Simulated assay, not measured.
Amino acid sequence: MLARIFKPAKTAMQSGKAQTDAWHLEYEPEIPPKVDPLMGYTSSSDMRQQIRMEFDTREEAVAYAERNGIPYRVIETHEQPPRPQSYADNFRYGRRQPWTH
């Protein structure tokens, strides 16, 4: 069973980067989930899908996978470059959006 090693992206519900520093190792689903016909619940008999391990660095996660013989795939992160922002730009003449109260 293949494992993914990745660094999570920030959620859309926050502006900060909380809980995005650690690297995660989780297993890819081996069996597709089944839908219960009576209640509509989604379930799976794949127990490894519940495992999610957290590591401080990418190297620690890779070392753990190699030490335990787990086939893995590393998904690299795409870091956004910081945009320079100035408070004075809020009141700049020729601003795209008009400034109103």
Rank of each mutant, 00 (worst) to 15 (best):
M1W: 03
L2P: 03
L2V: 09
L2Y: 10
A3F: 04
R4C: 01
I5F: 00
F6K: 02
K7S: 01
A9S: 12
K10G: 02
K10S: 07
T11E: 07
T11K: 11
T11P: 00
T11C: 08
A12L: 06
A12W: 02
A12Y: 11
Q14G: 04
S15H: 07
S15P: 02
S15T: 10
G16Y: 04
K17Y: 14
K17I: 08
A18V: 04
Q19G: 00
D21P: 00
A22R: 08
W23M: 01
H24S: 04
L25Y: 01
E26D: 15
E26F: 03
P29L: 10
P29H: 07
E30S: 09
I31N: 11
I31W: 06
P32R: 13
P32S: 13
K34C: 10
D36Y: 07
D36R: 01
L38C: 09
M39G: 05
Y41G: 05
S43A: 12
S44V: 08
S45L: 12
D46K: 04
M47G: 04
R48W: 09
Q49Y: 07
Q50R: 13
I51C: 04
R52F: 01
M53K: 01
E54S: 11
D56Y: 10
R58E: 09
R58W: 02
R58F: 01
E59F: 04
E60N: 11
A61I: 00
A61E: 01
A61P: 01
A63S: 13
A63W: 02
Y64T: 01
E66S: 07
E66H: 05
R67K: 15
N68F: 15
N68D: 15
G69T: 01
G69Q: 01
I70E: 00
P71L: 02
P71G: 06
R73W: 05
R73C: 03
R73S: 09
R73H: 12
I75C: 06
I75D: 11
E76T: 08
T77L: 07
H78N: 13
Q80N: 13
P82L: 13
P84T: 10
P84Y: 03
Q85R: 14
S86E: 11
Y87V: 14
A88K: 09
D89L: 05
D89T: 11
N90I: 07
N90P: 00
Y93M: 12
G94S: 10
R95K: 15
R96I: 06
Q97S: 15
Q97M: 14
Q97F: 14
Q97I: 14
W99K: 10
